[in-house]
Structures are given as C-alpha cells and as structure tokens.
Design a protein around this nucleic acid. Structure first.
Lengths: 149, 149
DNA sequence: TTAATAAAGGATATTTTTATCCTTTATTAT
DNA sequence: ATAATAAAGGATAAAAATATCCTTTATTAA
C-alpha cells in the first residue's frame, strides 16, 4: 500500500511523538532501533520529515528529534504527502491515465468507495490520536515481549 | 495498488477475453497496442499468464492468445496471484511483521475493512463479468474517441 | 520438407526504490 | 576557542521492478 519509506516515516513520527520531548530528544539511532528500520535510510526519511516541518530537530550534543507541543497535530495524510505518495489513492487501479466516474475503468466503482474511505482515515487520523492508543496498549508497533512469570 | 506488471496482466486478459477467439487469436503486438503497454514487457507477462493456464496460446502462423470457452471464468484474484502479488492485501499497512487482530498496528482496524472488501471484489469479479460490461460500453479501457458529427 | 511466423525462454539493460557512506554544518560542553 | 556530538546534505551502492533484445521451439502454409 505504501512504500517502505512511507511506512518508516509513519512509524518514526509515531515513536517521536510518544517518546520525544524537547528536553529529551530522540537520536536517529534510537528511532531506527525502536521502529526496526535501516539506520541510514531512516536518517534520510527524518531529513525529509524535518524539512517538511512535521518533526522538529536540533543538531549537536543532546540533539535529536521531537515534536513541538505547540505544533498542530499531524495527520497521516500529511506524512504520506511529505513522502510524495499522495497519489497512492488517486490513481486508477488498472493504471489508466483516463479513469473517472464518467469514463470508469472496469473496476473503478468497486475500488472507489474503499479509496475514499481510506483517504478519509488518512485525513482524519492524527499521529497524536494513534500515539495515544499506542500508549494505552490498544495498538502495537513492535512485538510485545512475553512477560516473565 | 498493483504493480505495472499486474495492471498490464489484468488489462491483457480483459482484451483477450473480449477479442480473442480460438479461430482468431490475438498477437502480442495486437494486445500491447490495445492496452497501451510496452510490447516486450507485455510478452513476458503473457508468458506467465499462459504458463499459469489463465490464457491459452498457440505458436506459429495464425498463432496468438485466446480464452478457451470451456475454461472456468478467471477471477481477478487468480491474475493477481499469478503475478505473485497476492500479498498486496495481506500485509500490514505499516510494514510490521507482526500485525493481527490481537496485536494490531496503529491503523490495523481502519485498514482492515478496506482490505477485506477489496479482497472480496477480487475474488468475486471475473474477467468475464468485466468484459461484458466493457462490451456494453459501461466501462472503458481506453479513451473513447470523440465521434465525428 | 522448407520457409515463415509467432510465442517461449534466457540474458541483459534501464529505472526506481531502498540502503549506505562520507563530508559539512550546527550546537553544546569543556 | 576547541573538541565532541548529532543532524543535514551530497554522492554512491545494492536490490527490485520495469523494459528490451536475442535465440529457441512449435506450428502452419507453401
């Protein structure tokens, strides 16, 4: 559905939102380990996210990534857009250049409803909402270790 | 959503179903032109589809591709499977190895419904059904030329 | 039986995505 | 000021997807 880059991006912003504070920023190393992603590739993605203003970053000792608590919540679609994948849900499922309600491809109608719903999810769901559910243990980003007896 | 290879595959089988008859088979050239796809790449894809038994083919003069009228209708998911993309709808949207109803990723539930419905569409819709709608002018594979006055 | 035709198959090339490495810049602590 | 640290940025490498080319095999028509 998304590219690896986009998957890592969403996971990274989630971790930064959950664990990054202005007084204790997260390093690339920490983030990559936490989301189990290749470190240098993750660094590139964080560069993009930082440039796009979706995460805050500071260089140097004690530097790293965090979310400005004054900043507006970040929607999933903002991240998808930052990773230049906005068209995942806007292109024809059969790859036709011309495909629309008036000139639909053979599966246009069947696919349309679901694309729209998903688009809505991406627009409405913010990283902050998802981070909350993660904190509450309702959802997961990594395999929850079996607790010792 | 699908790879180019899979898009071409679906479009190719549709064209073969609509226009290919045992007594008048379709050449690779004809198919590639019809679905506006790169010829040699399309040839490769047709090889796969033929090997998987989703289309019939004959070599030599007057050879080409057609659909055996005695064969069972082909579902979209059969094509997707033949192109080895069955997992498009079975993998976690955030790329997690472990993601399930009991250990859901942050967007598992939101995405699940979408994936299931789409999976259902792929299983239920056959190329024959879609070809019928194409023939009836209800759907399109190429830009319909504006008719002259 | 031979020549022509058209798909099958194998090898190779190009492009995009994924991933890595190295140098530069900003920031902090000493 | 200087050294250490950590992200930013640029250049490069590896892998996968897309695309092309050439030879072989099967079939048909002459």
């Amino acid at each position: 559905m998304f590219t690896k880059a986009c998957e890592y991006a969403i996971r990274a912003v989630l971790i930064i939102t959950m664990k990054g504070k202005e007084e204790q920023k997260l390093s690339i190393q920490h983030i990559a380990k936490e989301i189990d992603s290749p470190l240098p590739f993750t660094a590139k993605i964080l560069q993009t996210l930082s440039r796009e203003g979706l995460v805050a970053s500071v260089k140097g000792p004690n530097g790293g990534f965090y979310i400005d608590p004054k900043a507006k919540p970040v929607s999933l679609s903002q991240i998808v857009k930052a990773m230049e994948e906005e068209n995942v849900l806007n292109t024809c499922a059969l790859g036709l250049k011309e495909c629309s309600d008036t000139q639909p491809c053979p599966i246009h109608h069947q696919v349309k409803a679901y694309k729209q719903k998903l688009k809505h999810v991406l627009q409405e769901k913010t990283i902050q909402m998802l981070a909350k559910e993660l904190n509450e243990g309702k959802t997961f980003l990594r395999i929850s270790k079996k607790r010792k007896k």
